[in-house]
Design a protein around this nucleic acid. Structure first.
Lengths: 158, 158
DNA sequence: ATAGAATCTAGAGTTAACTCTAGGTCAAGC
DNA sequence: GCTTGACCTAGAGTTAACTCTAGATTCTAT
């Protein structure tokens, strides 16, 4: 069974333009061509495509993905490099997810900040008396609620 | 207490170029200037900067962050819009983290794939007999190990 | 007082990752 | 047989987010 570029594009929810661009950048050296020069993807190619999509989602630049594909095409002598490549990007992704968790925590505290302002009808309830400056005690109060067992995600819900 | 653009840049680990670019894009309307026209950041400005950095990390485009800052400068009439804005990006970030978790799972399965190939000295242990095509049973085997309680993160460790 | 560092603006340059255009070939349905 | 749509390449265009340059000004430390 083989697939045209359009069929692959539909399956992966990627445009044919993008697939050709990936090919130009060396990400798809495994794809066959028919007599007329059109790309014919095989079932096994989806194993590579899956990896490409995964690395893209992980934020790996196209050039580096191309390097990984090069390693794949070279054979068993590169197994260790391929392992290291994946381990490196696993670590980077773990670090990114930790950062995003902090970002999410912050977003939730700010949501609570606006929820309480909204309920009071004015943001000024959070200001130091006689200023437009946020009272640091407000964040401390939020943290206290969380420390007492409230879930950040719930605190911000209207 | 006020801070120069360079001091803020150091604190936030952002270049002064980038801060000026953000200003040009309307993200920093709250920053004062001294008599010579130089930016003077106040302590309270860090509340805004924190939000900007958070939204950037969450992947929100600069233009949209500018819109949020506009809402902030307008006053209490926009409290609901600001709440909705944060709620929307909270949801988007949650979705992104779920996708990244899948990506991480995939990366770990591939790491295990290469770990086992490495231990065998050849990737061909994963191929269907007489082909260069990966046996789908290999992924199934990994899933079985996970279902039996192994942690994906540990399975790939050398 | 003065040298060197930091800042200012306007605007040009860079980079990554697409995204599309032009001009042509190929294939499937009527 | 002919039309319509999918595909091809080469290369131009786009967009976001910086990043830097030039030329002028200002601040800081001797």
């Amino acid at each position: 069974m083989t697939y045209s570029i359009g069929q692959v594009a539909d399956k992966l929810d990627i445009s044919p333009y993008t697939l050709r661009y990936y090919d130009k950048e060396g990400l798809l050296p495994f794809v066959d061509r028919n007599a007329a020069g059109r790309r014919r993807f095989k079932d096994n190619d989806f194993n590579f495509l899956e990896v490409i999509v995964c690395l893209k989602e992980a934020g790996v630049p196209v050039k580096q993905i191309g390097h990984f594909i090069d390693l794949c095409m070279t054979g068993d002598s590169t197994l260790h490099d391929r392992y290291d490549f994946l381990a490196e990007h696993e670590a980077q992704l773990e670090a990114k997810m930790a950062r995003l968790q902090h970002t999410l925590d912050f977003l939730r505290w700010k949501k609570w900040y606006y929820k309480t302002a909204l309920q009071a009808g004015t943001e000024s309830i959070h200001y130091l008396p006689g200023t437009n400056h946020v009272d640091p005690a407000v964040h401390a109060e939020f943290n206290r609620l969380v420390a007492n067992g409230a879930r950040p995600k719930d605190l911000g819900a209207l």
